[in-house]
Design a protein around this nucleic acid. Sequence first.
RNA 1: GGAAAGAUGGCCGAGUGGUCGAAGGCGCACGCCUGGAAAGUGUGUAUACGCCAAAAGCGUAUCAUGGGUUCGAAUCCCAUUCUUUCCGCCA
Length: 423
Amino acid sequence: MLEITILRENPEMVIERLAIKNIDARATVKNILDVDVKRRETQKMLDDNLAESNNIAREIGNLFKQGKQADANALKSRTAELKAMAKELSDQLEQLQNEQNELLISLPNMPNVNTPKGKSAEDNKIIATEGNIPDLGDKFLPHWELTQKYDIIDFELGVKLTGAGFPVYKGKGARLQRALINFFLQEAINAGYLEIQPPLMVNEASGYGTGQLPDKEGQMYHVTEDKFYLIPTAEVPVTNIYRDLIVKQEDFPIKNVAYSQCFRREAGSYGKDVRGLNRLHQFDKVEIVQIQHPDKSYATLEEMREYVAALLRKLELPFRVLHLCGGDMSFTSAWTYDFEVYSAAQKRWLEVSSVSNFESFQANRMKLRFKDANGKTQLAHTLNGSALALPRIVAALLENNQTAEGIKIPKALVAYTGFEIID
RNA sequence: GGAAAGAUGGCCGAGUGGUCGAAGGCGCACGCCUGGAAAGUGUGUAUACGCCAAAAGCGUAUCAUGGGUUCGAAUCCCAUUCUUUCCGCCA
């Protein structure tokens, strides 16, 4: 959530920036500031009231010690009055705080000023395109047929065991998964990331910390008996490691990488988007997370962008990088790059990674802070990105590398798969 | 699943109704000491919100969470959550 101090000091700037995300925040911002004034007035009254009560209590204590029972009892009547008032004021204060908090939570993060203007995915700015799109001739299959042909991923069997969107990987299909996970983890470790193996279920507090709760709970699988949620991404447990922490400035940048299975209900999805590996309820992903000093977060974003690009180059996949426009950015992001690989058989671009700088938006909600050079605590910046999500990478690898002999495995992966071709 | 114990600051740990935001220790920071270090020694060391132009300062809240008793609660009462240990089960 946005910092209240920024809203107080520069409401116009906030309104202007949010307009880039096509949001008219004028009314909400005014509302927040009005509530803020009332909230502070109420707190002042309550604090004064409590201060008086505390003083009287102290005085009564002294009087009792001196044996002046009568004087002490005389003071008690005033405290009853104060107590009634305090109760009322603290109820009011709580209500105002809740009101302000709800309003603040309803505002998305401010996009960076350099964010492209636009309404939808059409308006995203393509900032790089790399690699060669293979010419498959006229005999080629989409991945959902290739997986059947080579018997490496069984969607039907997954339906039998669980339901749609829970495929079963078999033989070289399973080994390819394992190879990709190991490859992605090892690359990250080489780049200085600390590997984390997080729980796949989290409690409610963690869900709130990264913003899945209370709004997006429909997107998560819920273990009602124990009030746990299956994680939709490793970002949730990994980022929550730093919830309510004040880290040391020398620790920056904090770099974590985590492989996890991810579980998403994907309520409301349908059609060609969900065919085969394009959208699953359970999938594998390696996620990179960085926590950085505010002055350096944008340099870090570029570093992460370059890191993901390098992975795709090693996999020899044609890809492009998009700078998302205001209308297509997520609620929490200030700047997002999307990576898309070209799927030659489906003849379309598939999103495989999203690398974002959240600035202090997540950190504010989670109270993730650090002590700066002057000893003042301030919010850290958080960034994350997929590096990478497996299913669409697999789809593109299968489709783009299909040959008459079989599916060729890119050289960089062979050390991990132990085979060069799926046939 | 059954039984018991427990939850206090970055960590350990004292504290059973007032002078407790909380002894003591560790850690950390800065200084002294030292040729340099260790040891020793001195000082400091929570967070949030509010008041104030700001700093200083002041006020309020926080001893798992929520409620209650009381003029006054870390301390007493109730509920909840979590943790540990033992038994059972188990990869």
